[in-house]
Simulated scan of single mutants.
Amino acid sequence: MNKVNAEKKNKVIEAVRAAEFINNEMTVMIGGFGGVGNPPSLIREMMESGVGELTLICNDAGFPHIGVGQLVTAKRIKKLIASHIGSNPNAGKQMTDGELEVIFSPQGTLAERIRAGGAGLGGILTDIGAENPIIEAGKKKIEIDGKEYLVEPALTAEVSLVFAKKADTLGNLVYDTSARNTNPLVAMAGDITIAEAEEIVEAGELDPEEIVTPGAFVDYIVQSEGVNWTWAWEKK
């Protein structure tokens, strides 16, 4: 993927500046699983900026006032591509009321579609859902050696947001245990990728063996201000 700031030596910027890259009606991809691994400071800036009418690609709809769930609850999302929405009843209500378009993709398929997008592939073939009328609706099928596969298009975004345990100033990222979930894949699939990190160190300070996402995939880095769920609940 053509990264717009690959030559940039120090990619650290303020969170408020990072939020300026996200405009109304954009497609945004956010890493995480049930709020774990969602970038809290970047989501907070999105809430404050008032940006809306977004297409969101994420593993799930979060919880009502945790992670990406805040954006859903505030009705900033018009279209959601996710594996499930069961943990956020607001998403279900908006879908039922016709306020939110939801496109479901099985979790493994969703992850592979994102990976394919980051690798520059057009899509993937999968037999998951090939006989499910909901999943297969409107999708192309290909038969290989007598077996039918669905053609699932790759997923990319104009902006990808990820959360890391550590980052260096060149954008190399280290993730903390389960926060690794979808973040490495999401980091690869954005035209612009912004990483929020708990700790930012100078280039060369990270052990090369612990780096998961190379800095070539990351355009900007934001210092995390941590999770403040009190702020989130006050916004409900």
Rank of each mutant, 00 (worst) to 15 (best):
K79V: 08
G138V: 09
A195G: 05
G120H: 15
P39T: 00
G123E: 11
K93R: 11
A6E: 08
N90R: 07
G32D: 00
I124E: 11
V16H: 10
V16L: 08
I221S: 02
R76M: 08
I103N: 15
L173A: 07
L110H: 13
G118H: 03
V102C: 13
A111E: 14
L150W: 10
A197W: 01
T96R: 07
T109K: 04
E131S: 14
L170M: 11
A119E: 15
E196S: 04
K8D: 03
T109D: 05
E20P: 04
P214I: 04
E53G: 09
E112N: 15
I30F: 02
A74G: 07
Y149N: 05
E53N: 10
E152H: 14
Q107H: 15
I211S: 07
P184G: 01
E158D: 12
N88M: 08
A179Q: 12
D176R: 09
L80M: 05
E131R: 12
V28I: 07
I124A: 12
T213P: 14
G118K: 08
L150I: 09
W231F: 12
G98M: 07
S49N: 08
F33I: 04
A137G: 06
A167M: 08
N183I: 01
Q70W: 01
V68R: 00
K139Y: 14
H65C: 07
A130L: 08
A157E: 04
Q107L: 12
N181S: 15
A164Q: 06
A18H: 02
